[in-house]
C-alpha cells in the first residue's frame, strides 16, 4: 500500500439535532483519486469544509502529511499544501487569469507583505504562474479578467490556482458542476493527470466521471460512510445500490 497523505479518524459534526458527519474515517493515499459520492444533503460539503479548515469538527482527528491539523485554520492548512477548489466557482472576478494565479503563487510562498516591487513584473511569481496556467489548459487567456471567462474556463482557473499552491493533496468540490457533458469530457483527462502531482479527494455528482477517474470510492449517506472500495466493489455493493445507485442500477 502506498503512503497515506491524509487520514481522517472518527470525525463528528452536528448542527443542532442534525448529525452532518457521523464517525467518518477515510484515507487519501499518494497517487490516487479517492471519490466521495452520496445523495444531496449527505454531508459531502460539510466534510470537505472540515478537512479544509473552514469549520471545526466536534470531535475526531485529521492528520495531514504526518501532522495533526484539526485545530489549524484554513490559511495554515492551505500553506501546508492542502489545496481546495469550490463547488461554486470562487475566483477574484476583477482580476485577470494571470493576476489570480500570481496571487495564489504568492499565497503559497507566504510572502504577501512586500510593498515595493510590482508583483506582476516579479518573475519569481509570474514564471510559476505561467506554468500552472498552461498546465490547467488556459494558455493564451492570461490577460482576460476572470469575470469574462466561460464557466468551464473558470473551473480551469480554479485548478491552476490549486496547482499554484504546489499542494500535497487536492480537495476538489464538484469540479465539473455545471460544465455540461462536453465540458466534463474536457476536464476528465486534466483531472486524471492531476493525480500525478498530488492525490485528489474528489466530490463529484457526475457518475461517468467518477467511475472513469476514481481509484477508490467512498459513499456517504446521512453523514455516515456506508462503503469504501474500488469502482467495481462499489458498483456491486447491495447497500450502495439500494441507498444511492438504486434508480440507476
Amino acid at each position: 500500500m502506498s503512503e497515506v497523505i491524509l487520514e481522517i479518524h472518527n470525525l463528528h459534526k452536528a448542527f443542532g439535532a442534525l448529525q452532518a458527519t457521523q464517525d467518518v474515517s477515510l484515507t487519501l493515499r499518494q497517487g490516487e483519486i479517492h471519490a466521495l459520492i452520496g445523495p444531496n444533503g449527505a454531508g459531502k460539503s460539510t466534510l470537505i469544509k472540515q478537512i479544509a479548515g473552514e469549520i471545526r469538527p466536534d470531535s475526531g482527528s485529521i492528520v495531514f502529511a504526518g501532522q495533526r491539523v484539526e485545530t489549524w485554520d484554513a490559511a495554515a492548512r492551505a500553506r501546508a499544501g492542502l489545496a481546495r477548489s469550490f463547488q461554486i466557482s470562487s475566483v477574484m472576478p476583477d482580476y485577470t487569469v494571470l493576476q489570480n494565479v500570481v496571487l495564489a503563487v504568492q499565497g503559497a510562498q507566504g510572502r504577501s507583505f512586500g510593498f515595493f516591487r510590482p508583483a506582476l513584473s516579479d518573475r519569481h511569481l509570474t514564471d510559476p504562474a505561467q506554468a500552472h496556467i498552461a498546465h490547467a489548459g488556459l494558455e493564451g487567456r492570461e490577460g482576460v479578467t476572470a469575470a469574462a471567462l466561460s464557466h468551464g474556463e473558470r473551473r480551469k482557473l480554479e485548478i491552476a490556482m490549486a496547482l499554484a499552491l504546489q499542494p500535497r493533496a487536492f480537495l476538489l468540490d464538484e469540479p465539473m458542476a455545471g460544465m455540461g457533458p462536453e465540458g466534463a469530457r474536457q476536464l476528465t483527462p486534466i483531472l486524471s493527470e492531476l493525480r500525478t502531482s498530488a492525490p485528489i479527494l474528489l466530490v463529484e455528482h457526475d457518475m461517468d466521471a467518477v467511475f472513469a477517474l476514481a481509484d477508490r470510492i467512498s459513499v456517504l449517506v446521512y453523514g455516515r460512510i456506508i462503503a469504501t472500495g474500488s469502482v467495481a466493489e462499489i458498483r456491486a455493493n447491495p447497500e450502495v445500490r439500494a441507498s444511492y445507485l438504486g434508480e440507476e442500477a
Partner: peptide
C-alpha cells in the same frame, strides 16, 4: 483579492 473575495483568500493561504 481580499476585497473581491475574502473567503477565497484563506484557501490560498492568506
Amino acid at each position: 483579492g481580499a476585497r473581491q473575495n475574502p473567503q477565497r483568500m484563506a484557501s490560498i493561504g492568506i
